[in-house]
Design a protein around this nucleic acid. Sequence first.
DNA 1: GGGCTAGATCGACATCCGTCGATCGAGCTG
DNA 2: CAGCTCGATCGACGGATGTCGATCTAGCCC
Lengths: 117, 117
Amino acid sequence: MAVDLTLSPKQKRPPGEPCCEPIAYPEVTLSEATRIAAVAKALADPLRVQVVDVLRRHAGEVCVCELEPLFEVSQPTLSHHLKKLRDAGIVGVERRGLWSFYYVNPEALEILRSWLP
Amino acid sequence: MAVDLTLSPKQKRPPGEPCCEPIAYPEVTLSEATRIAAVAKALADPLRVQVVDVLRRHAGEVCVCELEPLFEVSQPTLSHHLKKLRDAGIVGVERRGLWSFYYVNPEALEILRSWLP
DNA sequence: GGGCTAGATCGACATCCGTCGATCGAGCTG
DNA sequence: CAGCTCGATCGACGGATGTCGATCTAGCCC
């Protein structure tokens, strides 16, 4: 690659009318957009949406053993989804004895919500 | 598999205290969650978030030729992302002559926003 | 019609994702 | 300590995703 060094301008306009109005730039920076996309990605699965819905409703904390019977997936699969939500900062976990209790981290959802219209 | 036919109950409780409060159910149906997740999935990429940001800011319509110089991806890649947004119903398109003008479909984003806290 | 332009589609490739069974580790109970 | 339970991790598999170059199609202009 790197052969055509004349580097023809990107917004070449045909002789007639210009195609559009003056250029608009995104107001979100790339790093902001990356963070927003990461939160959205964590919500890009129906099961995870429902898990967050349960946790959010149940203001306190919810045990994994309570989540398991709600969804028809294997225990490793549910654990995998919970990890996705954890890694995105959407939920937190607290271990008490044998049980893990999950809760929603509202700040993470706020990142997405505050960007939406 | 299918050996232990006694089928031990799912919420077997150890003799001590129960692990958690009464069971909480999700309030979103599976189909609602699927729709929410589809919208979130379409926003699960920084480039798409920035594209939507530009379109939303520019109240009217934005020509693809105006989007292209804003992002350092090839034209087919940008077109691919626009298709993702189209398929999710987040943006619409209107062709005028050679140019395609894209605009945001606020209703789709509302599906996600109205579910968030 | 011939040549050009904008943008959508195709094909290929590497990577990531959702799912499961199997296994592991921490912690309780007897 | 021995045995059990909860939940996380591992390994494997098929399918989806992001990216690009190449190609195709629709529409403009001479």
